[in-house]
Design a protein around this nucleic acid. Structure first.
Lengths: 334, 334
DNA sequence: CTCCCTTATGCTCGTTCTGAGCATAAATGG
DNA sequence: CCATTTATGCTCAGAACGAGCATAAGGGAG
């Protein structure tokens, strides 16, 4: 763009107020890289110093775009080439910085979600694929209500009850109800809300790091691996987004090999969404939406009767406005 | 949804392969502020110098969070207090900057979507509410196919045909089909994809600014107001997001007054989505999802028979996992 | 005052979609 | 050959959906 014809947006009244532009800041790029192998949703984590973290690095001058910068960091750190990449969120609280003090740099961070087809052995020794339920044990409902809720539920209730006043208490109770669906329906997409509540209640390690709150008997620090800075929060957001998107865009197929069985597809969807689906209805849905087509081959690697191998039918993108894998239902039995 | 992975074309630049952290950069904050009055979806635009633009300003040191910085800029520029605010996207191509040359600053920009309840007279003289269809005339299908498609369709086809080679041509044709649904189904959510295609095809003013392409008879520059830098792109993204979100979260109610009629609600949804809905089915949907409750009052301001006034039933948030205004159907007649 | 236009509201009917099962098929490992 | 496992086919009732018909209740024109 030519500078003369396209001035950058500037305040309508530049004189209106003081406030120095924030020059001392750094832009970080972080990637939540997701794959599915068998029954497990995997995320690529880098072990580096103390905590596990997501592949990430600062935006550099020679990065043409943010996404390009991200790809280059990921490849440098994990030797993983990314396929489908989408931006998740930009974190930029002023307190989110490297050092304290007057010349504290504000650490802006742009988080991305990337989907890759297979979990390669993760070239670098420091990079490893981890099930994302290692970080969020309470998000896996495939075998029913996780036992960990015996600790979560009373802990959160205690936190709500310990509110400074009734109004805050009611607010907390409502947020709990919304996020966890205690009593009513649970929404598997509200991963971030759940994590944030546990954070605020001081039940995850990061929340304690931040506030210096000690875990109490009523509100114990939960099992579930922690991550550096706010990387676990980014992961929560990524899971939430993916669980939502899977329903109205055919993104699961970005995670599948070129040909696969319907059972494998269902396993992948269940792994991501954390719930079990009714098998027959799932296949009916996939087939009647014509999301897949026959390859003509079959495999008996899956156990019982050999299964047809199918492939994603790309043309469906042009035919239906919002093809996706709507989750037909839940229930532990299949 | 996120901007398509194909970035808007930008002139290739020789890469100095230096790995310097990018210190010289500015963070911009921009807001797409949406309201609905009667039949029109409105966006708050600031006239400043040449082009219209979105309320925006740089992130400053005293802004505790990005969102807070945004609110402060918006209030300073438009005297509008924001309600529901959500982050849209962060733009950060290296070419997106003020000046060329060695010390070019990279201009990162974080765009937000804000919903406000009523279109106040826009305090500042420079700020004005504009129908968003002024910027995107091709997005309003409430009265059937907009006449402007007589220019769009052949223009885009010519662009696809003018591809440097067959592969690119096929790719372009597929993207057109996907975004505009020529022939098949149209997806009202693909606002951004449509804008980006028109941009690449040199059919919107911003695309010409970028490339210095002249409009040709086959590919005329379309009517539709332009905006500064990439603000129209941000608006496209905001519309796309809102059109999507309205279907699975009760966000329309953020735009409605405390009490309203079902007709007004339908008008708002139609204004946002750009399509007409079947009236009876729309009401059935709203009522059986128990999204609203009776106020007991009625109004005859709407024309014919007086209508009941209802209000949003907030408790629905706790009851159903994903309450939203699914669009019951289309068709010009009601 | 009545007719007509307008918007609101109620209800139906056939189709499609969904949830939940029953039943059969075709491998594998004793 | 049998038990086990996964794949696949099919049914059936209830809910949701698309498309109308029909009536109600205002205001304005004549």
């Amino acid at each position: 763009m030519s500078p003369s014809s396209a001035p950058l947006p500037s305040p309508a009244r530049p004189d209106a107020a003081a406030g120095t532009a924030d020059t001392a800041l750094s832009i970080g790029l972080s990637a939540v890289i997701v794959a599915v192998t068998g029954d497990d949703p995997k995320v690529l984590a880098v072990r580096h110093g103390g905590h596990e973290q997501l592949p990430s690095g600062p935006l550099e001058r020679n990065h043409r775009t943010l996404e390009q910068g991200l790809r280059s960091w990921v490849e440098r750190q994990t030797h993983q080439v990314l396929g489908h990449v989408e931006q998740l969120y930009t974190f930029g609280d002023r307190d989110r910085r490297e050092t304290d003090g007057e010349d504290a740099r504000r650490a802006l961070s742009v988080a991305y979600l990337a989907l890759v087809r297979e979990a390669r052995p993760a070239g670098d020794a420091d990079a490893a694929w981890e099930s994302w339920y290692r970080y969020f044990p309470w998000e896996d409902w495939r075998d029913g209500r996780p036992a960990i809720f015996d600790a979560i539920e009373p802990g959160l209730r205690a936190w709500a009850a310990a509110a400074p006043n009734a109004a805050v208490g009611a607010m907390r109770a409502e947020r709990l109800s919304l996020a966890f669906g205690f009593g009513q329906t649970r929404d598997e997409e509200r991963v971030l809300e759940r994590y944030e509540l546990l954070y605020e209640a001081g039940m995850v390690a990061e929340g304690l790091r931040e506030h210096g709150v000690a875990p109490s008997p009523e509100r114990p620090c939960l099992p579930g691996a922690e991550m550096a800075v706010d990387h676990r929060r980014m992961l929560a957001l990524a899971i939430a987004r993916l669980r939502g998107k899977i329903k109205y865009r055919p993104v699961v197929f970005e995670l599948m090999p070129p040909s696969f069985t319907l059972g494998q597809l269902q396993n992948a969807v269940e792994a991501l969404s954390g719930v079990r689906l009714h098998k027959q209805n799932f296949r009916r849905l996939i087939e009647q939406q014509r999301l897949v087509e026959e390859t003509g081959e079959a495999t008996s690697e899956t156990g019982g009767r050999p299964a047809r191998l199918v492939r994603f039918r790309r043309e469906v993108l042009l035919e239906r406005p919002a093809p996706g894998v709507r989750l037909p239902s839940a229930g532990v039995r299949r």
